[in-house]
Design a binder for these strands. Structure first.
Length: 413
RNA sequence: GUGGAAUUAGCUUAGUUGGUUAAAGCGCCAGGUUGUGGCCCUGGAGACCGUGGGUUCGAGUCCCAUAUUUCACCCCA
């Protein structure tokens, strides 16, 4: 038995309708906001992610599926996220001179070599959107509104929006310094990972779950109190816009994000009751990304939603039951002649747009009726020798058991 | 990468202090008279007890290793 790769999953026909329902809502909403779908390659030059996502991030340092290409001396990687590829694509396809803003969305799977856990797998699925070419908080508000709108339509009331601003390249260094100062004074109280974070990525100290570190984080200077005038104005405008759009949020200074490209506004939608990996949607502004990939100075704002986490949240909220299509008519056929006739009729009905099935196993009538019941067929048409001769057959309503006689070659349903 | 838990038929599980042909429910297949489902009844198929070692006269039951699943840390969607 050859097993599935660890951390991957099979999505069976019993589950795909829910996936498609969710994806359908994502597409509809994205398009309603003027985003167009983009499809980029599953793998890219490793360098794209190193430069885009950041060479100090865990994602790039220890989680990428990286390998040597066969025919060239070149390192390629399966995409660990979607934003870098889209940024690359707009530069490469000359879209940076299109009318601004550029708005793209995608539904893709990404790959990270992590230890699997609730809400985390090595191949994971996400809906992402990117908007380029606006520095205005109106674009932040629009992106957040889109995410919020998808979640609302999915029926997720157990999801909360947390927003924060981590500052731009002007104000972040100063804030970072004040954080380091704050935590250095209480260094001996920090957990081991936080001690290394103090040097590597001080912002991360803010969302450590260790109780002692949490205490330090509570007392730490808030990003929002160290913003430069421009960032502060933007953040306030964003809050005003969200208020006006009637989108509830909390300002949460522990939202820092882990990818290097984030600047300014960052946000997460956090779900209750789905375990430790509770962020169903995360995003923010990435004003330096396009330039760092060799494109023009073009700011951006986007987010990604984890589809499996959404499904967990939907289960938790009890909104994961959706209607699925069931056959209009099942044709029970006895004998070879009837089976041929049944196939003929089923095909005629399908060409008229009807969901019709015909027995292909050749079992007893009783077994076929049982099967029709199991697949929730609305009607069963019963064909045997005598029906073949008369050209008429019984059409049974499976709900109330009533039967009526129909002309085999002409009945409609 | 670090730690905890789990691993018995397709699924969910039971298996007593190691001792004969490893249970059950659901599901599947077939019957309950001659061509009619949903309920009920009967029967059947289906498990080398995750894999590999070890202890023992004897292991699903004990020990070790390994894989996978799962939960948490790290990190992120």
């Amino acid at each position: 038995m050859i097993q599935r790769i660890k951390g991957t999953m099979d999505i069976l026909p019993s589950e795909t309708p829910l996936w498609r329902y969710i994806e359908g809502i994502m597409r509809e909403e994205a398009e309603k906001y003027g985003y167009g779908e983009i499809r980029t390659p599953t793998f890219e030059n490793t360098e794209l992610f190193v430069r885009g996502v950041g060479d100090t991030t865990d994602v790039v340092q220890k989680e990428m599926y990286t390998f040597a290409d066969r025919d060239e001396d070149r390192s390629i990687s399966l995409r660990p996220e979607g934003t870098a590829s889209v940024a690359r694509a707009i530069i490469e396809n000359g879209k940076c001179s299109d009318p601004m803003p550029l708005k793209y969305y995608y539904i893709i799977s990404c790959f990270r070599h992590e230890k699997p856990q609730a809400g985390r797998s090595r191949e994971f699925y996400q809906f992402g959107t990117e908007m380029f070419g606006s520095t205005s908080p109106a674009s932040d508000a629009t992106a957040i509104a889109l995410a919020s709108s998808v979640l609302r339509r999915l029926g997720l009331k157990n999801v909360k929006l947390h927003i924060n601003s981590i500052g731009c390249k002007e104000c972040r260094p100063a804030y970072r310094a004040s954080l380091v100062e704050h935590f250095s004074s209480r260094r001996d109280k920090l957990c081991d990972t936080c001690k290394t974070r103090l040097e590597k990525n001080p912002l991360r100290l803010l969302d450590c779950k260790n109780p002692d570190c949490r205490e330090g984080a509570e007392l730490a200077p808030k990003t929002t109190e160290h913003l430069c005038p421009s960032c502060e104005r933007s953040f306030n405008l964003l809050k005003n816009a969200l208020d006006a759009m009637k989108i509830d949020y909390v300002v949460d200074s522990s939202i820092v994000r882990g990818l290097d490209y984030y600047t300014g506004t960052v946000f997460e939608f956090i779900a209750d009751g789905i375990g430790a990996q509770s962020t169903v949607c995360g995003g923010g502004r990435y004003d330096g990304l396009v330039a760092s990939l060799g494109g023009p100075e073009l700011s951006g704002i986007g987010f990604a939603m984890g589809i499996t986490r959404l499904i967990m949240a939907m289960r938790e909220a009890g909104v994961d039951k959706i209607e699925t299509k069931t056959p209009k008519v099942y044709i029970a056929a006895m004998g070879e002649g009837a089976m041929i006739k049944g196939l003929e009729i089923a095909e005629r009905l399908r060409r008229e747009g009807v969901f019709a099935e015909c027995d292909v196993v050749g079992r007893s009538l009783k077994a076929q009726m049982k099967y029709a019941n199991k697949i929730s067929a609305e009607y069963t048409l019963i064909i045997g020798e005598s029906e073949l001769e008369s050209g008429k057959a019984q059409l049974r309503n499976m709900q109330n058991g009533e039967q009526s006689e129909v002309e085999l070659d002409s009945f409609v349903i």
